[in-house]
Nucleic acid binder design. Structure first.
Ligand SMILES: [Mn+2]
Ligand SMILES: [Mn+2]
Ligand SMILES: [Mn+2]
Ligand SMILES: [Mn+2]
Lengths: 216, 216
DNA sequence: TAAAAAATTTAGATTAATCTAAAAATATGA
DNA sequence: TCATATTTTTAGATTAATCTAAATTTTTTA
């Protein structure tokens, strides 16, 4: 099988590929907190294993074999996050680092049984879709709160920024997954917004509104 | 912290120490399926970290820091095995290898919450005691079935051989943890035994009786 | 379109964990 | 007790993942 490190590279390339077709060496180095030279070495290795398409200086993309591996890691990551929150009562801002370790446990049987044990959840605690056994998943059609107009309504369904700081801020302001919100007002100077949830009015900055996603 | 490999060495030394005070290089190599030369290298490293007492050619023992680490790995191993069997419906012969991976997940918080989630079990699926947060545990006072006399009774409470083959054999013959048995007869020629469980009579070899443990 | 800048790769080391083969220390037993 | 066997350590390589510094390629822009 693949090493822990190879799996992290594939996952990083997968996530970076959602922005651009082809992914650069420096981008990968930044995500994995390593150096470009190290990335080049690993890219050669992954190319030898036919997990990525790689040509010198041309950036990389996953092969379908590589994508399959990446999706299985992401499946495990999100299922474990769900387990930690739903069964072990972790907060949603506490689970990522532990899931980064758990996602590398190989046993297919374990993941599939865990999935069944939890009733085959479709989304993780941050609103991200959980790929099924076949790697299939349906992402919500989401847009940032910052793109909403006054009086528009929506249900909070995901975040763009997964940092503990942002998640804790959302927790504190009660802007959590599943909450129904309505845009009460938009400040035309700094684009900050007043959101209405039930009887509460919450003032959020443009930056926060940009990282909070809603389904309509 | 310690690497995956260092943890496996400490655990191996801990288990081997139950037989003899001081543990030899070759014994460790055999358990870890590696070579004596590799073990010597690692022993130097563990000694530098003050996790073992080591003098060239004299064998090793754990320091109390090393024992603490070993017990935390064993705690995790056994708690995960319990989880796999009790919550995910694995069979008792299927859990060891997965637990060998899970035991290296670092998060203290995870283990302690898992422990609580399961109601703080005292024994794993094979009857082995689970150390608590402080590393404390109480082993059953067990003896092999082979040491029983005719008409003696006892409750199956552990195994000496953890191999899948032996566990499957026990499963098939219904000689599982918690079963009450009585020695109906002992064959004086080959020391095989007839065990009575409820209305069933089971013939077990001397070897099997030796690896099955009872509490009285 | 040719410098300059940025991105990427190569060269050469390093560290951890492993190996084989040979040397050294310890244990055994005639 | 001393030769032989066993155990353990050392010496010297190898492989994976990483690094820094230098070279190369591609991209940008003046
Ligand atoms: Mn995460
Ligand atoms: Mn998540
Ligand atoms: Mn086990
Ligand atoms: Mn066990």
């Amino acid at each position: 099988m693949n090493t822990f490190t190879e799996e992290n590279y594939l996952k990083a390339i997968y996530h970076l590929s959602s922005k651009t077709e082809s992914v650069g060496t420096n981008e990968i180095a930044a995500v994995l907190k390593t150096k470009a030279a190290s990335v080049t070495d690993m890219l050669k290795k992954l190319a030898d294993k036919k997990l990525i398409n790689y040509a010198r200086y041309q950036g990389v993309s996953l092969t379908s074999a590589g994508e399959k591996v990446a999706l299985s890691i992401i499946r495990k990551h999100r299922l474990w996050e769900y387990f930690l929150v739903e069964k072990l009562n972790f907060k949603w801002d506490e689970v990522h680092d532990v899931a980064e370790e758990l996602e590398h446990i190989a046993s297919r049987e374990l993941v599939d049984r865990l999935d069944d044990f939890m009733g085959n959840p479709k989304y993780d605690p941050h609103g991200d879709p959980i790929p099924d056994k076949q790697g299939k998943f349906k992402a919500h059609e989401l847009k940032p709160v910052s793109a909403m107009n006054v009086d528009q309504e929506g249900v909070i369904s995901g975040v763009r920024d997964h940092s503990a700081a942002f998640l804790q801020y959302l927790e504190k302001t009660k802007l959590t997954i599943g909450k129904k919100i309505k845009v009460a007002d938009i400040n035309s100077y700094d684009h900050s917004m007043i959101l209405q949830t039930g009887d509460k009015r919450i003032h959020v900055s443009r930056e926060a509104a940009n990282n909070l996603l809603i389904a309509q």
